[in-house]
Write a protein that binds this DNA or RNA. Structure first.
Length: 937
DNA sequence: GGGCTCACG
DNA sequence: GACGTACGTGAGCCCG
């Protein structure tokens, strides 16, 4: 077909696909030879999705994927530094480039690259040709450098966001239409591509200037008329540089091409060619999916068969067949399953219960899986008449007695030769513990995923199944319903429960088959085996122990708070002169900034004024608005009390377990990317301590009669780790000498003696020390210290001058993250940083997170090691470890053994890094004890 | 259910 | 005069 009117050309930005694919996927390798193929796999998937998604009435008539040929182009002759600051390509990506071309050809799509030109120029040239021939063009990319091409039948489509980029979008981004984008980019420059532009002029200013003068040439000619002296000078002095920038930014529409548009006509893929490619890449899932679609039989996978002979069937090899799951309703059947488990030596194990709270949940059923597709469900506690208001409590028929089943399973679950595999198995471990079964050994697919993929995605079963098994399990909501009408699992019909529950065990088993070898390949087996897996029983015991909370203390505080709140509310209404909901930030904002006309109100993206504590604190100091100041101060008081009451004194009472009289939190091991734990239901890691009023809540956390609470917390653990990792001699020495580290920092920076130091000077140094751990920025420090930004930047500069190792650490860490896609703790934990090479503000976040993660993560590893060793160490004492708060461990111990416990626990904590890592800075733990947590801390 | 606010390390 | 920023969490409330 000759390209012309009525034709529609799709131009796919191949490089964008590749990088997106590379960063979206874990570092997959080809099974047979270890060739990195993650990016190719993602690329092929994206191409496939593109092909499938573009078959409708508006399907393209012509299509091509365009690649960059090499990094050196004609632009480097104009400006040698062009794209010079691009980070090195990851070493495992480069070998995948030719394979992405192969993939494109395998899909029977034209694959284009030209020496000396960027993909963008080819896209520009083809767009122009197609437009001139009267056709339409869709550029599939979100690259802003291509936006200059939009218009006259040319549009862009962002395939990631599934969104059309049209003229309006361009105006929003650049402040001008597509035809003037080049002008704005020439002025603003581009740090990513190293286009110089005009110094000090960004997109905003550039857009203003272009709007005013029409176009770049006119602007440069009339530059002397510009009123602002700085801008005028810049434009006059840098006119040449700006013109060079324009040459760099402007895409060429006359790239020499050795083919015609006609040759890009859409062609169906040829099944053998496509299958051959996918097969050679050993893309099991994609091969199967496309084979189904094309209705052809995939060729046998030679290498895979060899692997299967050694390791059993691969997880994706079998489809999920819900009908094949067995309901175990007689003891003979159960015994058959037990025999299978003993035979194979492992079992995926899952419990179904009536609640997510393990301390209150009743057991409803158990599922087991021994191999992919071979799973069963043992119903135990299903009840009749689900949903009926007068539902009887009698058990449904056809269920084995719970006692008999547990008695039969106990030897298996406790057999040291049989591995019990679970997804978040701490949950099932606790459920079984309440039935007198101590499961061991255990394995957790959630934690395997955490060791492999922290930072890439979450580790819930549904997500893992979607990602790694290409299978969406039955959603629990489809059985239980949602919201108020939700029922508990015991009301689910057994026939439905079998499918859901057995599937969970099946999925878990398949994930395990997949993750187990992956741990070795990613070299995180040690992390998983020493920092994740052994933590499960330790945390389960802590959670089951719980901490005693005195309800009366909380109730009294709640009452006092309630009265105080009423009083404050009245005062607030009086000052405002109107009644409103003090708890509504929206209403408060309107009162302060509209009604009372206090200046400086800033609206957020929802259109509501910001009324956070910082804003209110500023208002309290406004002398021009005494009523506003008073109101703000009262609201701050109200907020504090209200928070304490609702989040702590009220809510904690509801968490006191009716039988144990204690509060049992739940720790999530795979919640925080850095290796920290997270505490939920309730969160006992954020009990107030910083304010006097809040700290009193800790008085409600008590030890029973004859016992005391002992708290040990690491002193400055993150700064010590920083001193070690970054290798800062002055910091190390200060810790060795037991100095006040913040005062020492201040002394080094400002040249003042520690003796008789102004507390505010020390405070500033402290803020800087913390800032360094967080990936310091002038902006952040300025905001924290409430000083001008330039001053904050001055502090930072001086700090880096004084401790040059810190700068080096930060630069090295960011560079590492950029090339590897992750950072590591001293103990080998990987934290992925997928956004680190992104453009836009996301990169800034990712950079700081990358700087922080090894420090925070190493500290998290250290306390994990201490916790794992603790039960052994304190076994001879009448003591229990109860809580972890990131750098603190809380124990309950018989009064007369408090000293001994402190001594033992301190030794474990201070020696926790050894022998895996020898820190140049010793760790120190401070201890306290008392009848309640406030006294012990 | 998202946004805001605020509690902790 | 810029996109916008200190790192990591969880919970309760308001409001559409």
């Amino acid at each position: 077909m000759t390209f012309g009117k009525g034709c529609h050309l799709h131009l796919i930005d191949g490089s964008a696909f590749i990088f997106r694919a590379y960063h979206a996927l874990p570092p997959l390798t080809r099974k047979s030879d270890g060739l990195p193929i993650g990016a190719v796999a993602g690329f092929a998937n994206m191409l496939y999705r593109y092909v499938e998604g573009n078959k409708g009435p508006d399907a393209p008539t012509h299509v091509a994927v365009i690649f960059d040929h090499s990094s050196k182009t004609f632009r480097n002759e104009i400006f040698p530094a062009y794209k010079a600051n691009r980070p090195e390509l990851p070493e495992d990506l480069r070998p995948q480039f030719p394979l992405t071309r192969d993939a494109t050809r395998a899909f029977n799509i034209a694959c284009i690259e030209t020496e000396g030109y960027e993909a963008d120029d080819i896209i520009a040239t083809l767009s122009c040709q197609a437009r001139d021939a009267g056709g339409r063009v869709t550029i599939i990319s979100s690259d802003k450098d291509l936006m200059q091409l939009i218009g006259d039948g040319v549009v862009m489509f962002d395939a990631m966001k599934n969104k059309l980029i049209d003229r309006d979008e361009v105006v929003e981004k650049f402040g001008v239409g597509p035809e003037r984008v080049v002008d704005v980019q020439s002025l603003a420059g581009d740090s990513v591509d190293n286009v110089p532009g005009a110094p000090g002029i960004g997109i905003k200013t550039a857009a203003l200037l272009i709007q005013e003068y029409g176009d770049l040439e006119t602007l440069l000619e009339r530059a002397t008329e510009i009123k602002q002296p700085k801008r005028r000078e810049t434009l006059v002095n840098f006119a040449n540089q700006i013109r060079i920038s324009k040459q760099l930014v402007m895409l060429k529409c006359d790239t020499p091409l050795e083919f015609s548009l006609d040759s890009l006509e859409v062609r169906e893929p040829e099944p053998e060619v496509l299958m051959g490619f996918l097969n050679a890449m050993e893309f099991r899932t994609l091969t199967k999916r496309i084979a189904d679609k094309l209705d052809v039989t995939p060729p046998p996978m030679v290498t895979a068969e060899a692997t299967e002979a050694e390791a059993g069937p691969l997880p994706e090899a079998l489809p999920f067949d819900h009908g094949a799951y067995e309901a175990v309703i007689d003891m003979a059947a159960l015994e058959r399953w037990i025999a299978r488990i003993r035979d194979i030596g492992h079992v995926a194990f899952d419990t179904e219960t009536t609640s997510l709270d393990e301390m209150r949940a009743d057991l409803v059923g158990i599922s087991l899986a021994v191999d992919a597709g071979r799973a069963c469900y043992v119903p135990l506690g299903h009840r009749q008449g689900g949903g009926d208001l007068f539902a009887s409590d009698s058990l449904s028929e056809g269920q084995l007695p719970m006692n008999a089943v547990l008695t039969a399973l106990k030897p298996v679950l406790e057999d040291p030769a049989i591995l019990k595999i679970g997804q978040n198995i701490k949950y099932d471990f606790k459920i079984m513990a309440r039935h007198g079964i101590h499961m061991a050994p255990i394995e957790d697919t959630m934690l395997q995923s955490y060791a492999l993929h922290a930072g890439l995605h979450n580790h819930g079963m549904d997500e893992l199944s979607d990602r790694y098994l290409n299978h969406t399990p039955i959603p629990i909501k489809s059985l239980l319903g949602g919201g108020k009408a939700a029922v508990t699992f015991d009301r689910v019909a057994i026939v439905d429960a079998v499918k859901y529950a057995a599937e969970d065990a099946d999925v878990t088993l398949r994930l395990w088959q997949r993750f187990r070898p992956a741990l070795h390949r990613a070299q995180v087996t040690t992390v998983y085996e020493t920092l994740e897996r052994p933590l499960i029983p330790v945390l389960a015991d802590m959670e089951m122990a719980g901490v005693k909370v005195d309800r009366d203390v909380l109730a009294r505080m709640s009452n006092a708070f309630a009265q105080k709140l009423v009083q404050l509310e009245e005062e607030i209404h009086e000052i405002a002169g109107t009644r409103f909901n003090v708890g509504s930030p929206k209403q408060l904002g309107e009162i302060l900034f509209d009604q009372m006309q206090i200046p400086g109100g800033e609206k957020g993206k929802t259109g509501a004024y910001a009324t956070g504590a910082e804003v209110l604190e500023d208002i309290t100091t406004l002398e021009a608005h005494p009523t506003g100041a008073q109101l703000a101060a009262r609201v701050l008081d109200w907020r504090q009390i209200s928070k304490l009451k609702s989040t702590y004194t009220d809510s904690l009472q509801n968490h006191i377990h009716p039988e144990t009289g204690r509060v049992h939190t739940s720790y999530s091991i795979a919640g925080a990317n850095t290796g920290r734990l997270a505490s939920t239901d309730p969160n006992l890691q954020n009990i107030p301590v910083r304010s006097e009023e809040g700290r009193r809540i800790r008085e409600a956390f008590v030890a029973p009669e004859g016992r005391v609470l002992v708290s040990l917390d690491y002193s400055q653990i993150e700064l010590r780790i920083l001193a070690h990792i970054a290798g800062i001699p002055a910091l190390k020495q200060a810790f060795r000498d037991g100095l006040d580290i913040h005062a020492m920092t201040a002394s080094e920076m400002f040249g003042v003696p520690v003796e008789g130091m102004d507390p505010s000077v020390r405070r500033q140094a402290k803020a800087i020390n913390f800032g360094v751990i967080y990936g310091i920025s002038g902006f952040g420090l300025a905001r924290n210290l409430r000083i001008p930004r330039a001053e904050a930047q001055g502090f930072i500069d001086r700090y880096f001058e004084r401790f040059p190792g810190i700068r080096a650490y930060m630069d090295e860490t960011v560079a590492f993250a950029k090339s590897k896609g992750y950072v590591q703790t001293l103990f080998g934990r990987k934290i992925h940083t997928p956004e680190i090479n992104a453009k836009g503000p996301g990169a800034g976040f990712a950079k700081r997170a990358a700087i922080n993660a090894p420090i925070q993560g190493t500290a998290a590893d250290v306390i994990r090691r201490a916790m794992i060793r603790m039960p052994q160490a304190i076994a001879g004492l009448d003591a229990k470890m109860l809580l972890q708060v990131h750098d603190e461990l809380l124990f309950e111990v018989a009064e007369e053994q408090a000293e001994k416990l402190t001594q033992v626990a301190r030794a474990v904590m201070e020696g926790a890094a050894d022998p895996a890592v020898h820190l140049d800075v010793h760790l120190r733990a401070d201890a306290g004890q008392g009848r309640n947590w406030a006294a012990a801390h």
